[in-house]
């Protein structure tokens, strides 16, 4: 897989799904081998129960603030793309993760892959997302109307990622 077929971006600004799909196709030079393109988009939902049980907050959720470890984030995302590309013989793969303050309803993350067949494309997308959630150095802070709290890691995410090594 040529290195240009992997694209990773950590950015404050939003992204356009159509433009990203166009860029995905262009990244493999209209490679006629791509028979399946799958994508996952994560959004900020209006979820007031985002905090751990028992942790109080004040008012409605307004936004998420996302912090990251700049030197490490892109390394981890690129490594995940490389791992998925090797495992499912992907032809092209791109990941975008936003940082900073993201209001409710906006996109946070994009995983998009091109493969020969749909099973590989679906599986690779899920693999990258599951590993991103437990290994990429991003941290979410929930911004409520009157206060803000760091979001705790979910045990269910850890259980989900461990299923890949069973």
């Amino acid at each position: 897989m040529p290195s240009k077929a992997i694209f990773v971006s950590v950015q404050a600004h939003n992204f356009c799904l159509n433009e990203q799909q166009q860029a995905l196709f262009e990244s493999c030079n209209a490679n006629a081998e791509v028979g399946a393109a799958a994508s996952f988009v994560g959004l900020v939902r209006a979820e007031n129960n985002i905090m751990e049980t028992g942790q109080s907050h004040s008012g409605e959720l307004r936004a998420l603030y996302i912090e990251h470890y700049p030197a490490m984030t892109e390394l981890v995302l690129r490594r995940l793309c490389e791992e998925a590309s090797e495992k499912w013989q992907l032809i092209t793969c791109r990941v975008i993760h936003r940082v900073g303050t993201i209001p409710i309803g906006e996109q946070i993350v994009l995983v998009m892959v091109g493969a020969k067949h749909r099973a590989a494309a679906f599986a690779a997308c899920e693999f990258i997302m599951d590993h991103l959630k437990t290994s990429a150095p991003f941290w979410k802070k929930a911004i409520f109307e009157h206060d803000e709290h760091w979001v705790a890691a979910k045990q269910t995410d850890q259980v989900k990622v461990e299923q890949w090594s069973e």
Partner: peptide
């Protein structure tokens, strides 16, 4: 070396 300490990650 560059050392970093942080809580469990919560991206995505």
């Amino acid at each position: 070396d560059e050392i970093a300490f942080f809580p469990p990650v919560t991206g995505g």
